[in-house]
Design a protein around this nucleic acid. Structure first.
Length: 500
RNA sequence: CGCGGGAUGGAGCAGUUUGGUAGCUCGUCGGGCUCAUAACCCGAAGGUCCCAGGUUCAAGUCCUGGUCCCGCAACCA
């Protein structure tokens, strides 16, 4: 059976992780955890994108070599994810030796397959920003949008990728959902792009970018960062599985990784749709993969704003995952604060739309959902179980099994669509059903009237249900799911304490 | 006509792909309960689904035109 392969973008190393990165990574983490528990296993890949002129500039600003700079930052990223209990299976750095070697092999093979060609062209180059600008970006008077100076025309010879040879095929794959793009609006957007004349052959090597992977057959050039970046999804997998690639046909290599390749779901933000939906499949086809070996689904999400405004340092409305997590660690009194944020981002942001995040909203959701609904329901049932000495009672195994299957069947339908919002609401509904059941049954009256058998019957049902629900919560709130089970096993404690 | 996102009861949001009684959370009001974290349950009020046309037996949902907000300036997913 093939393992579920989920990826996040690799994050560009020009700063510390923020909420947006956290969101992508957490969605991937939830999917991975779910499939490890309920499916044929998972392979969860994340990492850092370390090449490019911007990184080199930033490094020199702080007086470090690019390598030393990225060593430091990528370590920080890695430890951030580890502290937030992100269960990645592999963390790739694009400066890793195996990756640079693979990227070189990729461009070499693209050349052998006739997918790239040399071309001389005139480009506009702004000295002030040390970057190329396109004509459409120019301000009135032909000035660089950032520097108010006139860009110079430079002549460069680069290697160009024959995107025009593949765009029709890619469009058909997207139209027929062989390559699925979610949500629908993003799919439409990509199809629109593919019809536009702007989608042309483009340069995949650079002369002026020195902090990059050298083109093996052209010593003046480095590989365009997007070839470098996108192929992380493949190089990381190949490396992690210990597969040898040199002197081997691409189909032959694929054979060795079919238990994981191709990606089932690739998480990405709306700003990098074009690269993942158009360039990436085109590159893979050019490399010699067939249509069934392409990524299955791109899940495109929106951005977070805070209080309706874009988060910015000057507005002082930045919400960082580390601070929220630490704040709720204090409140809960265990290292489960991160679960609160995990829950929040899932419930707040429909995948695809922008989401709003403020400390007030997080607190509101914590109080109403986690404290009043979930925490309180566990407390109610456990309180009665203790009082009536029925803590260890459960439904008969075969009945338990039946109930679990019915619940898993429904929850699975949501998860297979990556509908985390629907999944969480289903979990909440189940919890609410128990609450309403208690009102209906009135166990306290049963106890008063000495109807012990009936009391035991209902409590066994609720306790069993809570155990099954704890399993459902595990991908969303891993640490809290463990606490739920510990409480059900008879340990004392409070799941989600109220904020006083 | 640069590109994209949005407009649904007081607030925040689902629902629009595949048209068919307008739904959720919070808030408000009334009632109930006591197993529980002043939690929980029941009920009620509150909506021209931005506007104007159109298609249809039927439109929040499809079509046409318009209005108003918000991103595209790197702390960018």
């Amino acid at each position: 059976m093939k393992r579920f392969f989920v990826t996040t973008p690799i994050y560009y190393l020009n700063g510390a992780p923020h909420l947006g990165h956290y969101y992508s990574t957490t969605i991937a983490d939830i999917l991975a955890r779910y499939h490890r528990k309920n499916g044929a296993g998972a392979f969860f890949l994340t990492g850092t994108d370390e090449h490019g002129q911007k990184v080199a500039e930033k490094a020199s600003l702080v007086g470090l070599s690019p390598q030393a700079f990225t060593d430091e930052l990528s370590t920080e990223w890695k430890s951030t994810w580890q502290n937030l209990d992100i269960s990645y299976d592999h963390f790739i750095r694009t400066t890793d030796d195996y990756h640079t070697a693979f990227a070189q092999e990729v461009i070499h093979r693209l050349r052998e397959n006739g997918a790239i060609y040399e071309k001389e062209y005139d480009a506009l180059y702004c000295v002030g920003s040390e970057s190329f600008v396109s004509k459409s970006e120019l301000r009135e008077g032909g000035l660089c949008p950032d520097h108010d100076e006139e860009p110079q025309i430079v002549n460069e010879k680069n290697w160009f990728f024959k995107l025009t040879d593949y765009k029709d095929q890619v469009r058909r794959l997207i139209e027929t959902d062989v390559l699925e793009i979610k949500p629908q609006s993003r799919k439409n957007e990509v199809l629109e792009m593919l019809r536009s004349p702007d989608i042309q052959d483009f340069s995949v090597t650079r002369e002026r970018v020195t902090w990059g992977i050298p083109v093996p057959f052209d010593e003046n050039q480095t590989i365009y960062v997007w070839i470098d970046a996108l192929f992380n999804y493949m190089s990381a997998l190949i490396h992690s599985q210990g597969i040898e690639t040199s002197e081997r046909d691409i189909q032959d290599i694929i054979k060795d990784i079919t238990d994981i390749w191709a990606p089932d779901v690739q998480i990405l933000g709306k700003d990098i749709v074009k690269f993942h939906a158009i360039y990436w499949p085109a590159f893979l086809l050019a490399l010699g993969l067939n249509e069934t070996q392409l990524p299955k689904k791109l899940l495109v999400h929106g951005f977070f704003v805070s209080g309706g405004r874009k988060m910015s340092k000057s507005l002082g409305n930045i919400v960082t995952p580390q601070s929220v997590s630490a704040e709720y660690d204090q409140i809960i009194g265990a290292s489960r604060g991160n679960d609160v944020l995990r829950y929040y981002v899932v419930i707040e942001m429909m995948i695809g739309n922008d989401g709003d995040v403020t400390p007030e909203r997080i607190q509101e959701v914590y109080q109403s959902d986690l404290v009043n609904k979930i925490g309180n329901t566990y407390q109610r049932v456990l309180g009665m179980a203790r009082k009536y000495d029925l803590l260890t009672t459960r439904m008969a195994p075969e009945k338990q099994e039946k109930l679990a299957q019915a619940i898993q069947h429904k929850s699975q339908a949501y998860m297979n669509q990556q509908d985390l919002y629907g999944y969480v609401h289903y979990c909440l509904d189940l919890t609410g059903e128990i609450g309403r059941g208690i009102e209906l049954v009135k166990p306290w009256e049963l106890a008063k009237n000495g109807q012990d058998d009936e009391l035991k019957y209902h409590l066994s049902k609720w306790l069993t249900a809570l155990e099954i629900i704890a399993d459902l919560w595990e991908p969303i709130m891993p640490a809290s799911a463990i606490e739920m089970k510990s409480l059900l096993a008879g340990n004392q404690g409070m799941l989600f304490p109220r904020i006083s």
